[in-house]
């Protein structure tokens, strides 16, 4: 079990470590519950050569090398405080392999505006019993565990939720990033004319449904884009061989579903 920690994160996992509550420790790997957004396009020239991003000094129009560029925070118009990579690194929270649950709250109490990104937590190593135990209890009691943890050099606030026997971590936005209706200048709730309320209630009733159909939420633009690409491929119009140099910059896409399926099947019949 400790091997994973020595060798870093499991393949494709954003983070590997342990959920702890009290003195109990549960080894988990964390995977995004979201796939990357739509079909990615690259910037190319009219012959299809992938372009490169370069920085220029606007004064002498000279392309700049990485070491000639510094980072500055503008404290007032045109006045910058320089901050180096080393200085920022020193401020990063210390790498930690723990999601330490500080308390359990009613999951229904968590305001939806806080939710930022969802991750699945999968049991790591050969022991799944504590994982199943926590998932069962949280699901039965409708509780969510609250914790902070360090992932990718940042401290995140998370709610750990259980659904259908699977633990999920939802990163939460910090309170000072949420605008209240009062900050926004929205009017206070007021009594509305009864006839108008009745009219809206009737309209709501007319639209009443029971099940959420995820088919409704397909990305129409992505489908149109893929159709356009297909038409061009069939007509062999504006299609070029990808230059070999383009390979290196393209990010490796990991099929999350494959990893998740494999992990759960492997874990499936294993003795706890």
């Amino acid at each position: 079990m400790a091997e994973k920690e020595r060798h870093g994160d499991a393949a494709g996992a954003f983070w590997s470590g342990a959920i702890t509550f009290g003195l109990v420790s549960i080894q988990v790997d964390l995977y995004s519950a979201h796939r990357p957004k739509s079909a990615a396009l690259r910037m190319v020239d009219r012959h299809g050569a992938p372009l490169r991003r370069r920085y220029f000094c606007p004064r002498d129009h000279k392309p700049l090398e990485r070491e000639e560029i510094v980072r500055g925070y503008e404290i007032e118009e045109g006045r910058f405080i320089l901050v180096s990579d080393e200085e920022l690194e020193a401020l990063e929270p210390k790498k930690s392999r723990e999601i330490d649950l500080r308390c359990f709250v009613d999951a229904a109490e968590l305001d939806p505006v806080y939710f930022e990104h969802a991750y699945f937590l999968l049991p790591a190593g050969s022991v799944s019993k504590p994982y199943r135990l926590l998932a069962r209890i949280m699901e039965n009691s409708g509780k969510a565990g609250i914790a902070t943890f360090v992932m990718r050099e940042r401290e995140h606030l998370v709610a750990i939720l259980a659904e259908k026997g699977i633990l999920r971590a939802e990163t939460l936005r910090f309170a000072d990033e949420i605008r209240s209706p009062e900050d926004t200048g929205l009017p206070s709730p007021e009594k509305a004319p009864a006839a108008k309320v009745k009219q809206i209630r009737r309209a709501m009733k007319k639209l009443q449904g029971r099940e959420f159909d995820r088919e409704l939420l397909h990305d129409r633009r992505r489908r149109l884009l893929l159709e356009l690409v297909d038409r061009k491929l069939k007509a062999a119009e504006d299609v070029v061989e990808k230059p070999p140099a383009a390979e290196a910059e393209g990010a490796e896409i990991i099929d999350l579903m494959e990893i998740i399926k494999k992990r759960f099947t492997e874990r499936g019949g294993a003795p706890a």
Binding site: M43, D45, A49, P50, L51, R52, R53, R54, Y55, F56, C57, P58, R59, P63, L64, I69, G72, P243, A245
Partner: peptide, 10 residues
């Protein structure tokens, strides 16, 4: 001076 970003031919 704040840098300007441009796309260049590889």
């Amino acid at each position: 001076t704040p840098v300007r970003q441009e796309m260049v031919h590889p």
